[in-house]
Amino acid sequence: MDELNKQAQVLTAIMSGFLVIGHLLYSISYPGGANSFFQSKLYIFCSENPIISALSKRIYGKITDSLGYLLPVNEFISAHDIITEFVDPTELYSKAGHLLFVTFHIQVGMGYLGISFLRAEQSRKNALVEIEQELKKANQEIDASKANGTNDNDRKGNDGKNKDYDPSINFRKSAGPFIFFVALPYMVQIVFYGGMNMYAFHCFRDDIHRTIRLNDLFANDGSRFVATATSKVSNLSPESYASNSETVVTTIYDMVNRNLFSLPKLMLIPGIVAKQPMMMLKITPLILLSDWIKSTIVAVITTELERVNKEVKDVSPKRFG
């Protein structure tokens, strides 16, 4: 009975948690809905209270600042402002939301797949190390039997065994199953789902390109087309605007995509820290140092490349008149 009570309590807590999550998800999706949390008396009271409001704004600001160290949040906001200049926000949000939904599921799935592949690969590497140990052990046994001076029959038996004994046989036998049941499915899934994700993104990116270059340009009696053509401030063509918007969208999407792919691997870190705190303490400075060296070298090369590119542009032939 006591056990049943405990389970009932846990079940109540879990159900309550799920109801709260559901209500929050609904409220975020429909902030203006009658049943939304953002329309509740509690929320209105809190938002109208100057102390709570100031405190929550301060916390929000601090969170945004902290996020700024991990992701270029301000650049994201600027990119959003630029794109909404050209694309209808309602249409943009629905398409971007769906793309994010698809990308999240595919990237997290592929991230988990990557972890299981890494584990399988590591166990195979470990098997390779075990072969060497087994070989050493077998050699030691032979040496020991020779030193003990075993009789001729025993020696023959040992020699016969040594001739047939191959410690790598299991490892070699498992190569085929590893390729066909682990490596190949991994490769196929990465190619297929990665390609599908890229296709969804290209649809989104091309849609924005078309909106800027064609649809929006001639909408509202072609006012934007006239404004672009007669602008004295800029001599950029609609194509240039559309191409630059592509760069903005692609850069932002790549950042999100990469981080989502890394998410499952990052989620392993707390477990590793809990299990091997000393190892993490030893490894982290090395990782940071190697990262710093790598980024310094890349920065030097990039700066030099930019300098050379600028020089090429400056000395390229120009036609006047």
Binding site: K95, H98, F101, V102, F104, H105, I106, V108, G109, M110, Y112, L113, Q189, Y193, M196, N197, Y199, A200, C203, F204, D207
Partner: peptide, 18 residues
Amino acid sequence: FPYDGLIAVSAVTYSRYT
């Protein structure tokens, strides 16, 4: 966008199974 429904079904089922 083209085939967005099919893509969503594939992505969701793949993610939940993996």
